[in-house]
């Protein structure tokens, strides 16, 4: 009994020390769910962490919340995709040194049978109009993310205010929404990166509309303004920005493939 309790005590102490014993530098980055759910960060960050001898703590939320965390000074760097919101973030003095990192595009995915017939549509707005007319199920991110922002823009240009039981606001990340749309055989707007990562095993939904200029999806990385928040790890944040926009990071992004297909594209220099 005594030996057992000694042993338990030792194990307990050891486990408890696990969480507090990390003395390395930690950089907090808020990002969108798509960069995490697509699996890119798992290959992009470790080389940087080794090089800079630090840990990058990734808080994956919607773009809107990711920027909010930056505005509150709760993170050191943000990595998002909603160009208009990003520019406002910088203009309002919360961020500095915004850099383009990569891009992909949005696609409208849905059940293979395409009940609303959106494959024939000429523009994304028209595709959404067809879905609304048929009242086919559509799952919206509903989380103020970059994808959600883009979706709202599209509804606006279609002149429709989506409402009704066919329009579901999930309030979740990209991955969960694709999972939900798969379960309910519904349409949704997804970024190509996350969709590619899910295609096959996790979803049987198909890309039904793609390739329009308005569906372009650029990702940017921004350091939180050290003048506004003196506590942020600005130097480390700048190192990360240099890394992902530099040759090594760009090569990792370009080479990253999910199910044999590229997920993100880099800008030609």
């Amino acid at each position: 009994m005594k030996i057992l309790s000694r042993f338990l005590f030792a194990v307990t102490t050891f486990i408890m020390l696990c969480t507090v014993a990390s003395a390395e530098d930690r950089l907090k980055m808020s990002t969108t769910t798509s960069t995490q759910d697509s699996g890119l960060l798992k290959v992009l960050l470790p080389p940087f962490e080794n090089k800079a001898n630090c840990k990058v703590d990734v808080v994956a939320v919607g773009t809107g919340q990711a920027l909010k965390l930056g505005e509150a000074g709760d993170v050191d760097v943000v990595f998002v995709h909603a160009r208009k919101l990003e520019d406002k973030f910088v203009a309002d003095g919360f961020g500095v040194n915004r850099k383009d990192v990569m891009y992909n595009d949005f696609v409208v995915i849905g059940p293979k049978g395409d009940p609303a017939g959106i494959a024939k549509a000429k523009t994304a707005a028209e595709a959404l109009k067809l879905i609304a007319a048929k009242q086919s199920s559509f799952i919206s991110r509903g989380d103020k993310s970059g994808t959600h922002t883009k979706e709202q823009e599209l509804w606006k240009s279609a002149g429709i205010e989506p409402k009704g039981s066919w329009y579901v606001e999930a309030g979740q990340g990209m991955g969960p929404v694709i999972t939900m749309a798969t379960e309910r055989q519904a349409y949704t707007l997804a970024d190509r990166g996350t969709y590619n990562a899910y295609k096959g095993q996790k979803t049987d939904l198909a890309i039904l509309f793609q390739g329009e200029k308005g569906l372009f999806n650029p990702y940017g990385i921004i350091a939180v303004n050290p003048k506004k928040f003196p506590h942020v790890k600005h130097d480390l944040a700048m190192k990360l920005i240099d890394f992902v926009t530099g040759a090594e990071g760009q090569k990792i992004i370009a080479d990253y493939k999910a199910h044999g297909e590229p997920v993100f594209f880099i800008y030609k220099k």
Partner: peptide, 22 residues
Amino acid sequence: GGNIRGYTRTMTTAIAMETGKG
């Protein structure tokens, strides 16, 4: 905790996330 991989990701947050991701 923010569900940070390898840092603040717990059993419960991981379950919530992994299930969402399929």
